[in-house]
């Protein structure tokens, strides 16, 4: 397929225009000096770099208009490095453009396709050598080789198996158990309903049992948000209402979309917003999703108080917390 339409004629390469430095020795000398100045500026930059590294204290700050207070050592080294690099580059390019030959040269291209004879020879060689090895005839060798080559890829895959344990039920469980006290994060103090005013929000974690340590894996599943509303503001089913205590409602803080911490509570609208992808949950309606990509409400933790009046979990979460996964059944 090609365009056979007649064309205008190609006038050919334009005539070469000489630069001033090609013909005028004075201009060439001037260009040489300019290149030398640029290279010298680069050397000065390196000196500034060395000076800043050795003699400027790392905790010294200087005020630069617009930029504000800047660390003098970092800035001095940075500007020194900039000069030393930039001016070498500018010198080299100025040299190339003003003094090196600028005659355009034409080179020929050749099609990449090999000559017919070479291609035929190649095919013949492959066929001949292939036949000599007997790969085509000896099907037993062919099949067993295919089998072993197919299987050999399994070994490196299998070796990766010990990268981690199997998930088992781990994604579905948290540390919350019946009667686990809610404690503040990070101070670890148990809380009473009276600690939380209406409209307040608090991040809590399950109280550690003696000898237990809190890992980030725990925090990633156990983090819970407490929010206190006026009890009449809830629009909950009777069951869910029984999971609250005096207007205090508890949700998993881990977003059901991609697991970020749902940390932004808007007191006026009573919305929880995930800062990652803006999924918005309506607190009075059991964290129903009202905007954004999350498909499920935040799991609600049933809470009550124990005999000493501290907030505790009535029971573990009734569904897995955090983002979805294949084995999740609800």
């Amino acid at each position: 397929m090609s365009d056979k339409a007649p064309r205008l004629s190609d006038p050919g390469l334009p005539e070469h225009v000489h630069r001033k430095a090609d013909t005028d020795p004075a201009a060439a000398k001037k260009a040489e000096r300019q290149v030398a100045i640029l290279f010298t500026l680069s050397a000065l930059g390196t000196i500034l770099f060395i000076y800043s590294y050795i003699w400027v204290k790392t905790d010294r700050f200087i005020f630069i208009p617009i930029m504000g207070d800047q660390n003098a050592s970092q800035l001095g080294m940075g500007i020194g490095l900039t000069f030393s690099l930039l001016f070498i580059g500018m010198g080299a390019i100025h040299w190339a453009k003003s003094l090196m030959p600028d005659n355009e040269v034409a080179a020929e291209r050749h099609e990449f396709r090999s000559e017919e004879a070479d291609r035929a020879d190649f095919v013949a060689t492959v066929k001949e050598q292939g036949a000599a090895s007997g790969l085509g005839r000896r099907s037993l060798i062919k099949r067993s080789l295919g089998l072993s080559l197919g299987l050999i890829g399994l070994s490196p895959l299998l070796l990766l198996r010990d990268l981690g344990p199997l998930p088992k039920k781990s994604l579905e469980q948290t540390s919350w158990k019946t009667g686990t006290r809610l404690v503040t994060d990070p101070s670890g103090r148990p809380i009473k309903p009276s600690d939380l005013e209406v409209g307040a929000v608090a991040q809590v974690l399950p109280e550690l049992q003696p000898g237990q340590e809190r890992t980030l894996e725990n925090v990633g599943k156990d983090a819970v948000l407490l929010i206190r509303l006026r009890p009449e503001e809830f629009e909950l089913s009777p069951e869910r209402l029984s999971w609250t205590y005096q207007g205090i409602i508890a949700f998993s803080k881990i977003c059901t979309h991609m697991g970020c911490a749902v940390a932004l509570y808007e007191q006026q609208t009573k919305h929880l917003l995930c800062p990652c992808h803006q999924s918005t949950f309506d607190v009075p309606r059991a964290a129903k999703v009202i905007f954004g990509p999350a498909a499920r409400p935040l799991p609600q933790l049933a809470i009550t108080v124990d005999s000493e009046g501290y907030l505790v979990a009535q029971k573990p979460f009734t569904e897995p917390v955090g983002p979805s996964f294949w084995e999740r059944s609800s």
């Binding site: 390469l13 930039l86 080299a92 040269v105 034409a106």
Partner: peptide
């Protein structure tokens, strides 16, 4: 069928080498 330009040595070596320093400088 042709390619019109400048030879690698010395023009492109100087230009490309110089350009590396400029990119690094920036």
């Amino acid at each position: 069928k042709n390619v019109i330009g400048y030879p690698l040595m010395p023009v492109y070596m100087a230009k490309a080498g110089g350009f590396f320093f400029i990119v690094f400088g920036i």
